[in-house]
Simulated scan of single mutants.
Amino acid sequence: MKSETITKCLLLFTLLCILFSCKEEELRQPAENDTTVPQLVSNVKVENLSGKARITYKLPNDKNLLYVKAVFTLANGTNFEAKSSFYKDTVVVEGFADTQEHEVKLYSVSRSEVLSEPTIVKVKPLEAPFQKVFKSIRVLDAFGGYNLTATNPTRDNISIIVMRRNAFNEFEVDNFKSIFTRTDAVLSKIRGLSTTKQELAIFVKDKWGNSSDTLYTDINPIFEAKLDPQLFRALVLPGDAPQVTNGAALVYAWDGRLGWPYTSFTHQINGGDVPHMVTFDTGVSAKLSRVWIRPFPEGTRYYYLSTMKRFEIYGSSSPNLNGALDASWILLGSYTVVKPSGLPYGNDNAEDQATAAAGFSWDVDLAAPKVRYLRIRCLENWAGGTAQSINEIEVYGAAQ
């Protein structure tokens, strides 16, 4: 009986909540014949933000109020409205392209869509997000194209419009090279261009139709070629890890042959637990673009044992022969291998195997100078140690 009584009480309470909710909703429904003018909001405050402003206020004690509406005009002449229900005491006005003072009219709106007299508010937005993005744009020549970077700290929806000259020598939008994003760190790597000098025109738009000035810049894509592996030579420096003793050798890393023993494979025990390094001479001084590495598989498992998971590549024109990783070496890049499937250690699916078998291409810092010698330093392999294995390696860039 006690359980039955509790159940009946809960059902009654639920019904009362639903009834109250419906009654409250009915109170806020439009009443077509009520022409009563709603009361004004009061105690208005403004917080100026990037390209927008947050306006807070005290709602009137008016049961006839349905929502508050902000009406304003952007610099391009477009009229906008922003609405906030009677449940909130804040409305955000946005889409401003400049930092000038703008007038905003706040209206209380009744259930019959009757507007109050306006409350005039002055806002002075901070620099708009699209303007910040435009100022941060950098275009750097790259191998076979260019890299475009920019920052978008407020993560607003922006469009970086890239224009190129057409057959009539007129700029037109290139949708394949333009960027549409809301990420905070923008990076666009364009490749496959001819190495002739080209002119770009770049500007930024936001979702309200505001546009920045236009940046005009020339790009000179750098010619890329594979360095001749026949010129490569192993260079064993003090501190470099020894190869395993059952057939592997560093020179096998560029011989074009796959499988055991045609691989570079350092020995964890003799090499110790410090990061394992191998060094070689490419035979030419070159500005490098990328280094391609195919890991050595243990059967069908690539993300296994001594396959490098986290590693660094260094370059030098004249390395210190004492083996020290000192100022004679320049860090060309730090890299992490990611297994596509995310499966646990020791488990590779078909996608994992195909990805690794195709090799990984690691971009070199474009700001790095020409180098001749390379050093690969394994920080962690997939087994958790520091030994490294490389089945094949290829180096790309522009030889000088």
Rank of each mutant, 00 (worst) to 15 (best):
T151L: 09
G272L: 04
T36G: 13
T266R: 01
G384L: 03
E392D: 15
T99I: 01
C378T: 10
P295K: 02
E392W: 02
S318F: 04
V236P: 03
T279R: 00
A185S: 15
E4S: 11
D62N: 03
L148D: 02
D141F: 10
V109R: 00
V364S: 04
P229F: 06
Y303Q: 06
R375I: 01
E117F: 11
E94S: 10
Y345G: 05
E26S: 15
F86P: 04
I120Q: 10
G346P: 00
Y304E: 15
G259Y: 04
S178A: 05
T154D: 15
S264H: 08
T266H: 00
V251I: 15
W382D: 02
R375L: 05
K8A: 14
W329E: 00
P369E: 06
F311I: 02
K124V: 09
L325N: 08
L193Q: 06
D352R: 11
N64A: 12
T149Q: 05
P129W: 07
K197D: 10
G145C: 02
G145T: 05
R54G: 04
L193A: 02
G342A: 08
D363I: 06
I222R: 15
A70P: 08
A201F: 06
M277K: 14
S112F: 06
L106V: 04
F168D: 13
S341W: 00
K132T: 10
K124M: 14
I190Y: 05
V236I: 13
T266W: 01
A356W: 01
T183M: 15
T14K: 09
G333R: 07
F86V: 14
G77T: 11
V395F: 01
G283P: 03
G144C: 06
S306D: 15
S306L: 08
F296H: 09
G299T: 05
R155I: 09
T5V: 11
K309P: 07
Q243M: 15
I219Q: 01
Q268S: 08
P38S: 14
Q198K: 07
T300E: 13
I313F: 07
N166I: 13
V371N: 09
E170G: 09
S136Q: 06
I179G: 06
S389G: 15
G192P: 03
E312T: 08
